[in-house]
């Protein structure tokens, strides 16, 4: 069950331009966390920014929880300045994560940009399996530090696509989709258009697929109904689902992509 922690910051550093790695020492949080779940972090004790920042878990090891984030706005810029030894007000782990049991299927991890980050934790749980990773980022460096090198370190076969062609294919990660084997199971996280393309491919080919969606949130626990996505009920009826608590990871068949 989720809880509130005053988590000790073990390190916080810019691993490549604009991307930060924040490591928290919090054994109970580490023990509770599941791949695909997120933490809701209060970046300071002030009322501006007012809301917590939801950030997915990148890596869990020996009682430590690592977050990767891009400093893109007021909240994450403040978070980028947090220093070793400080305590952070952390709520979590929150949301429904990936179902990390691929059964007999070959796990295919598809990540775009900072969306690669949560796939790291998933790959940890898939250790010992043959894992294929299709990753895209603006350049090779960003791809590596968003989790690409860690996935390789775990033995995954990584196929890359970059905006500038500095690593792998010069283009989008969705151009690599034909590499997904027919017996694959897709786990994807990244920008909306990427997820839409991945979902379309998986649905067309009948390949099982789970996607992690992103949305601005207020409560993070399913109470405020601020982060809704269009979903499909089991009977095919269109329903509103809460990204924070019904997700952020959804089976593609449970999302209304129309």
């Amino acid at each position: 069950m989720a809880d509130l922690f005053q988590a000790r910051v073990l390190s916080n550093s810019e691993v490549c331009p604009g991307i930060f790695s924040l490591v928290l020492e919090e054994p109970r949080l580490a023990a509770l966390a599941q791949p695909g779940q997120f933490l809701n972090i209060r970046v300071n004790a002030e009322t501006s920014p007012l809301l917590r920042r939801p950030l997915s878990i990148h890596w869990v090891e020996e009682g430590r929880v690592e977050i990767l984030f891009q400093a893109v706005g007021k909240g994450t810029e403040i978070l980028a300045r947090v220093r070793r030894g400080e305590r952070l007000d952390v709520q979590g782990p929150l949301g429904r994560g990936f179902d990390p049991d691929p059964g007999d299927r070959t796990p295919v991890l598809i990540g775009g940009g900072i969306g690669i980050a949560p796939l790291g934790f998933l790959a940890q749980r898939l250790k010992g399996r043959k894992v294929l990773a299709l990753l895209g980022a603006r350049n090779g460096e960003a791809l590596a530090c968003s989790g690409g090198s860690k996935l390789e370190g775990l033995g995954a076969t990584v196929h890359a696509a970059t905006d500038d062609g500095s690593l792998g294919r010069h283009g989008l990660v969705t151009e690599l989709l034909s590499e997904v084997p027919a017996d694959g199971i897709i786990y994807a996280c990244g920008p909306g258009p990427m997820l839409r393309a991945v979902a379309g491919y998986a649905l067309a080919k009948g390949i099982p697929c789970q996607v992690s969606l992103e949305e601005h949130m207020a409560c993070g626990v399913g109470a405020c109904l601020g982060c809704i996505c269009k979903g499909l009920a089991v009977n095919g009826e269109s329903v509103h689902k809460r990204v924070c608590s019904d997700g952020p990871v959804f089976d593609v068949r449970g999302v209304d992509w129309s």
Partner: peptide
């Protein structure tokens, strides 16, 4: 959606 906007010391819903 969108249903939320953060504002100085507040939020819109």
């Amino acid at each position: 959606m969108p249903r939320l906007a953060e504002t100085p010391s507040g939020m819109l819903n």
